[in-house]
Amino acid sequence: MSIFVNADTRVIVQGMTGRAGTFYTDQAMRYGATYVGGVRPGKGGRRHLDLPLFNSVSEAVEGTGANASLVIVPAPFAANAMIEAIEAGIGVVVCVTERVPQHDMARVKAALRQSDTMLIGPNSQGILTPGQCKIGVMPTVDAKPGNIGIASRSASLTSEILAQCSKAGLGQSTTVGIGGDTLHGVDFVDCLKRFKDDPETEAVVLVGEIGGREEEEAAAYLKSVNFGKPVVALVVGRHAPEGRRMGHAGTLSTFGLASAAEKIDVLRDAGVAIANTADDVVAAIGTVPVPA
């Protein structure tokens, strides 16, 4: 099985006719994911990459039966695109756009609270269920089907850890890039809940960063339930200076709060095995005792 997406997921692309949209849609279709159309206002009725184009998400849903959307539009327009997909009843929306204004994301979060949509991103590499569905911009060359669930705030580290897992014979059930922005959709807890209920996920890897409260909330959740599966975490930014943002909008440690050390301590206290570097993750997976 998998979480959020699978072989039956039918994807539309908001922004498919742009350069990036064209490239990543073509990649996903070559991988074997089911993409059924694109949305580009004013170009409805035309075709692109041999897929139909629609003027709105609601038209695309009606015409294709789509249940997922990839939002790959410029930052000033990303919030409206996400909200349009939410209002059209799309089940899973993946937004890879970076630098979406936070006041725009506040509007998106309000729309999500009144819906059943699961938003992944923004500033996310996307979601991948190997051999079944790819929605996003992540490479797939090293991905292999298997039993390791990965949820990550870092795209580059996800690719590295995924490659090392596959090389060691540890395929992945689903890899989720939750996004590096302060305000975003699904978080570590959402992913952990889904992985817990997925019978084919046997262990989970969390890739965290400084800033925010994602890791602390994951630790609190793990302490509150009988998770029943090993969890390994890598938290980066141990040597980041206070008050300086390190790449992602959410990777900011302020006056000792949300530091890597703090996050590592609370995760370890929740029974999570801590990997010091990306090179340690595979070895850690095999040594974690299953929580009682």
Rank of each mutant, 00 (worst) to 15 (best):
N123V: 03
G121R: 06
F188Q: 11
P122E: 09
T129G: 01
A168H: 11
V189C: 14
I135L: 07
L162V: 15
R213M: 14
P145C: 10
A155K: 02
E200G: 13
I148L: 12
S173R: 08
G131R: 11
N147I: 08
A218L: 12
G126M: 05
G211R: 05
L170G: 01
R213I: 13
K196Q: 15
I148F: 03
I161Q: 01
F188L: 07
G180I: 02
L183Y: 14
E202G: 01
S156D: 08
C191W: 12
S156I: 09
D181Q: 14
S154P: 04
L183E: 05
K223M: 14
I135F: 07
A143K: 01
V225A: 10
E209G: 04
C165L: 12
K167M: 10
I120S: 06
L128I: 09
E216D: 15
T140V: 11
V186Y: 14
K223Y: 04
G121C: 11
G211N: 06
Q172I: 11
D142W: 02
I178D: 01
E202Q: 13
I161Y: 02
S166F: 02
G131K: 06
S173L: 09
E217I: 11
F188G: 11
L192K: 06
G211C: 08
A203H: 14
E215V: 07
S152N: 02
G169C: 04
V137T: 07
G212T: 04
Q164M: 13
G126P: 09
I148Y: 00
P199Q: 10
T158E: 02
V176N: 02
S159R: 06
C165E: 00
V225R: 09
P139K: 00
G180M: 05
K196V: 02
L192S: 11
N123G: 04
C133L: 04
R153T: 02
A155G: 15
G131P: 07
N147V: 10
T182N: 05
